[in-house]
């Protein structure tokens, strides 16, 4: 009987995983991925695919919202749809995802006629490219933000909350304009990454109107428990709102000074290949 040789060659430098989420030190079978690493990857990809293709459960989202926060605007959220009729259309026609369907536009106009008051902030929740981002993270984000807003000076009046299916970021501008809000805040499911299928993106536009370019928006990205926390995201959002109101702009002209990152040399941030 021949001696049993190990089928998988491990990598001793796998210990370096404490510095990064990158898939390093995977080992190899021949020169290929070992089976368990292959399957781990397939699972992550499957979860990301499901995040893209599972529809947002709007009913559940509305229930979760009303359960978790008393601070919601008095009326229940308005459910809206874009002009993209299904997921396949949505994925290939971003232009349709940026515009409200005629029915939704009409519904919004009807609402506006019945409630013509002024408002400052329109919060728009959009499924975007990850329903799980919205399903899991929109409620705690909105809750955190509304709690922080109560402590905020400046009397920010809320427009009714809206929820959009098959939407892109820019659809918020059309909604903000319809609701007569001076600033629109879009919470949207970001394109899912392999290790982050549920990242929420937050976009802010001052003076929303349809067909504004991306350069007019500010973005806070990677909002999720394992990424940017709801607390931090809320603080940055409030900062952007204050600055947008003060300068009466948003986008490239409005710099987010809360985010200045510098690399510092500390134990966990040095080049061990040359500094050992």
């Amino acid at each position: 009987m021949s001696e049993q040789k190990p089928l998988v060659t491990g990598n001793v430098w796998r210990v370096l995983r404490r510095f990064t989420d990158a898939r390093i030190g995977l080992g190899r079978a021949g020169v290929s991925l070992p089976t368990h690493e292959l399957l781990r990857f397939q699972l992550a990809h499957a979860q990301a695919r499901d995040a893209v293709h599972f529809p947002l459960d709007v009913k559940r989202l509305v229930e979760d919202l009303s359960e978790s926060t008393m601070a919601l605007p008095k009326k229940s959220p308005l459910a809206l749809k874009s002009q993209a009729e299904d997921r396949l259309t949505y994925l290939q026609r971003p232009d349709l995802g940026r515009r409200l369907s005629p029915e939704s536009l009409e519904g919004l106009a009807r609402h506006r006629a019945s409630d013509p008051g002024e408002s400052d902030i329109a919060i728009v929740i959009v499924d975007g490219l990850s329903s799980s981002a919205v399903q899991n993270n929109a409620v705690p984000m909105v809750t955190q933000f509304l709690r922080d807003l109560e402590d905020e000076a400046g009397n920010w009046r809320l427009a009714p909350l809206t929820i959009v299916e098959q939407g892109r970021v820019a659809i918020g501008d059309e909604i903000g304009e319809c609701l007569g809000a001076s600033v629109v805040i879009v919470l949207i499911g970001e394109r899912p990454g392999l290790s982050s299928p549920d990242s929420l993106g937050i976009y802010l536009t001052w003076g929303p109107e349809s067909r504004l370019s991306d350069a007019r928006r500010n973005c806070i990205s990677n909002v999720r428990p394992a990424g940017l926390s709801f607390e931090h995201a809320s603080q940055r959002l409030l900062y952007l709102m204050r600055e947008a109101r003060r300068l009466r702009i948003s986008g490239v002209g409005l710099k987010d000074r809360t985010e200045e990152v510098v690399i510092e040399k500390n134990a966990n941030n040095k080049n061990f290949l040359t500094d050992n």
């Binding site: 990598n11 370096l16 990064t20 990158a22 390093i24 030190g25 690399i263 941030n269």
Partner: peptide, 19 residues
């Protein structure tokens, strides 16, 4: 690449690639 440009994180992926 590393999502925050962490030097140790970059060096870890770099070493993995070289090896």
């Amino acid at each position: 690449n590393h999502p925050t440009d962490n030097v140790s994180g970059i060096a870890a992926s770099l070493l993995d690639g070289l090896l």
